[in-house]
Write a protein that binds this DNA or RNA. Structure first.
Lengths: 150, 150
DNA sequence: CTCCTTACTGAAAAGGGTTTTCACTTTCAG
DNA sequence: CTGAAAGTGAAAACCCTTTTCAGTAAGGAG
């Protein structure tokens, strides 16, 4: 699922759903932002394009867009949910601890680790959530403190 | 930092903090549970040992114990924060999608992945959060639906 | 085009988890 | 013993999120 209006529209239609003006505004707001946004930030951004948009609708839209895979939930710092546009495939995110920018990367060969973990714990691993933190090219030159792992 | 009362006590003292009866109860409650617990669950469990414990204190204690590294925050499903005792070293967790049990594993050679991600994104990777989902030995025999990645 | 059904919407209220406030208690050093 | 600082519980305040509800768009059937 790429982040394209017509594709999103088709994905919605396949479930009997519609790409309304409000949903379009939410979609655009997420696409335009360089970093992950909380629902409230999405709301603020989307209202510039669709001022009568309600926060309720933002929440509902985020849920719908998540369901069809048009966006990705990211674990923010402090509060839980932030949203970024989903890339084309199963991807993971790097969050910049300097500026909050979120970038996706596709390198995802977890087999070695999941196999080792399965061996060590006896679990049958079915899924993984991986999120990296670092400093983007712009912030990397400054010497910010890296955050602790959590 | 292991999950031992005297060590925790020492770690607290190093910061001018104390291991009170209430904090001890919270610590024990987390140590005793086989799986991750929300603050409210910790509160309920700890009150059996210390009935006059307040929920406020649980939140404050969880924060303190997190700061000194005595426990680990886990991203629960739906709401964000759950807590498990921290193992001896930098570890990661596997959460059973069948019963909620949490197990730690130490296999953590992320270098291949972080290097690849750094190359792909231009970030300098400083940290990572990894959490696996799977079925523990007990639940693995049943055929539950694996969860989707998030 | 009109009717009808269904998706969709915003405002307000409700809900729930977390944090702050405040007065009081405990602990420890001197 | 005394003073200072850490710690505490109850209640209130504060979010953020979900639900409710009445009303509005939108698309298909006729």
């Amino acid at each position: 699922m790429s982040f394209d209006a017509s594709e999103v529209s088709a994905a919605l239609a396949a479930r009997g759903l519609r790409l309304t003006r409000q949903r379009r505004a939410v979609l655009d707001a997420i696409a335009a932002a360089p970093c992950s946004q909380s629902p409230l930030q999405v709301y603020d951004a989307a209202r510039e394009q669709c001022p009568e948009l309600g926060l309720t609708t933002v929440y509902r839209t985020l849920e719908v867009l998540d369901e069809i895979g048009a966006l990705r939930r990211v674990h923010g710092d402090g509060h839980c949910e932030s949203f970024v546009p989903a890339g084309a495939e199963h991807g993971h995110t790097v969050v910049c601890s300097g500026c909050g920018r979120v970038t996706e990367f596709t390198a995802c060969d977890m087999r070695g680790i999941t196999d080792a973990a399965a061996l060590e714990t006896g679990y049958r691993i079915t899924d993984h959530f991986l999120q990296l933190t670092g400093l983007c090219a712009g912030c990397g030159t400054r010497d910010d403190q890296p955050r602790r792992d959590r």
